[in-house]
């Protein structure tokens, strides 16, 4: 179930830039590990001095967890297999399933959450519920034409994966923490980072796996 190709694409693009920069500006050799570390430290120092807190977005938004740190570190090259394993294992271990075992909610509510772009921006009202904006990146219900293409189409997700307990658990975990299945994916970790509540994740899971959901027609 692992889809790693967007990450690969991203790394490929980064490598191409590095190569192009080398040709244009005549870097004879790749920077050493200590030069890289110094550049990273300098970049972080500059970043920290370049923002002010606004609304709900404090300066702590710039602090990286281990997954973010590793994904940034390897963004210019190839992600080693050992790092892939480490990131996926740590994130899988962080997935919390609901205490009552109920994984599937109401797909109609899920559809609204998938449509809503609000949430976590400094311009958003933190008192209002967050959306997930799944449509920013995915095709889901065919009725919504304004979908993005950063992620794969999820049309007929439930049909394709089968209406089983295993699919429901996978859908839950994927929405909760996408890094558990594809290290350095471009998909946010909606549960892990408190973007969605437990009930909202249930509703989004329903949109994916309920046989009555428009996604599965």
């Amino acid at each position: 179930m692992t889809t790693r190709f967007p990450a690969v694409r991203l790394l490929g693009a980064a490598a191409a830039v590095a190569a192009a920069a080398g040709i244009l500006y005549g870097c004879a050799s790749a920077p050493s590990a200590s030069e890289e570390a110094a550049l990273t430290a300098r970049t972080i120092a500059i970043m920290k001095a370049s923002f002010r807190p606004k609304g709900q977005a404090g300066l702590d938004r710039l602090d990286q967890d281990e997954t973010q740190r590793l994904c940034s570190q390897y963004a210019g090259g190839k992600l080693p297999e050992s790092i892939v394993k480490k990131i996926e294992q740590e994130n899988l271990a962080a997935v919390k399933y609901p205490a009552d075992g109920k994984l599937v909610g109401d797909w109609k509510e899920g559809e609204k959450i998938a449509e809503l772009g609000r949430g976590k921006q400094f311009s958003d009202d933190p008192a209002k519920p967050n959306g997930a904006n799944c449509y920013a990146c995915h095709q889901l219900s065919p009725k919504e034409e304004a979908y993005g293409t950063i992620g794969p189409s999820l049309y007929r997700f439930g049909r394709k994966h089968g209406y089983t307990e295993e699919t429901r658990r996978y859908a839950w975990a994927k929405v909760y923490d996408a890094e558990a299945f594809s290290a350095c994916t471009n998909m946010p970790r909606f549960g892990q980072h408190d973007i969605l509540t437990e009930q909202q994740i249930r509703d989004v899971v329903a949109l994916l796996v309920d046989p009555a959901s428009p996604v599965n027609q």
């Binding site: 693009a13 990286q64 994904c71 993005g148 293409t149 950063i150 973007i195």
Partner: peptide
């Protein structure tokens, strides 16, 4: 390429591959 924040985004999330759209 610096990823951080609630959504794990970097500029690269949205601007490092060809022919993508948001919505």
């Amino acid at each position: 390429f610096y990823r951080a924040g609630t959504h794990d985004f970097a500029c690269a999330t949205c601007h490092a591959a060809d022919d993508l759209r948001i919505r």
